[in-house]
Amino acid sequence: MKSSYEGQFVSIDTVQEKLRDIAYIANRKMAMTVYLACRLGKPILVEGPAGVGKTELAKATASCLQLPLIRLQCYEGLDESKALYEWKYGKQLLYTQLLKDKLDDIISRENGFKSAMDKLHQYDDIFFSWPFLEPRPLLKALQEKNGSILLIDEIDKSDDEFEAFLLEILSDFQVSVPEIGTVEAVTKPLVFLTSNNTRELSEALKRRCLHLYIPFPEAVLEREIIRRRVPDISEQLAYQVVNFIQDVRKLDLKKVPSISETIDWARVLMILHAEILNPALVQDTLNIFIKFEDDVAVVTEKVHLLTAKALK
C-alpha cells in the first residue's frame, strides 16, 4: 500500500522545498527524518527546547500534504476515554427514553420474564454500535480515509499508563474497542510526538519512534526563518536581531529565548518602525523575549555591550 504522502514526498529535497514553500525552514536532518518516517511508516518523536518549532513541524507537514491535522494535547490524567473513544451516554439515555414505548411493546408481547429478557438481548447491541460511539483524536486519526497527521503534543506531560497504552497504536496502528472489535487504520497516519523532556520517556516508546532532536538554530538558519516569517523586515534589522538573540542565548538565563520569541520580537520591532537596534529600544522591548525578572536583570546589565556587538 502506497500512502499519499509517499507520492508527494519523493525525496529529501522535495520535503525540504515543500516545507520552505509554506514558510517552515527545516534543515536537512529534519527533512530527512520526515522523509524516513513516510517511507518506513514510523512515528517521529521530536524533542528539543521549548519554542524551536516542534509542534510547528507537524502543522507544516500537514499543510504540505494537505491532510487533516489531528491533535491530541497530553496532560496529567489524560486517559483512554478522552484520547481514544467514549460512548455517547447522553444519546444512549435519550434514545432509551424515546424508545420506551417501543421497548414496552416488545416486552409486553412476551409473557414470561425469561423470554422478555431474551427478546431484549437481541436489541442491546444497537446501543453499543458506531452511531453511539464518540471518536476521540486517536480513533479519528485511524479512521481518516486518506491518511492524516496525528500530533501527540507534549507526551511527557501524560502518565506512564497512557504512554504504555500508546504502544499498540504506534506499532500496529490498531486499537481494540471491546464492544465492537479491533479497529485498524484505513491509511496509516503519520504520527508526530513532541516532548519537552520534563520526564524521561520509556525505552519501549523511544524504541518505536525515530528520534529527532531540534536544537536552537544556527544564525544563518534563524535569519532565514525570520525573513520568511516576518517578510517586511529589512535585511539589516534581521541580521541584528538574530545576532542579539544568539548572544543572549549564551548568557546564563533561567529561560533562554526561543525562535518563536525571536519572531515575536522581530514583529514588534516592525510595528515600532525600528530601523536599527539601539540600547534604549532593546531595553523597552526586552519583555517580549525575556520572561523572568531575574533574567531581565542579567540582560539589562549587558544591554549596551550586546547591542554594540549585534550592530557589528
Binding site: 529529501i12 536537512r28 536532518k29 530527512m32 527524518t33 522523509y35 524516513l36 517511507r39 518506513l40 518523536l45 524533542e47 523511544k206 524504541r207 519512534c209 525515530l210 528520534h211 529527532l212 532532536y213
Partner: peptide
Amino acid sequence: AVKVVGYRDRPLLKDAFAVTLAKT
C-alpha cells in the same frame, strides 16, 4: 533507513543513524 537514504552522502548517513539509533 540506510536502504532508503543510501550511503553515498556521508552527513546524511550520519543523520540517519542518529535518528534511528540514538534516542537522547
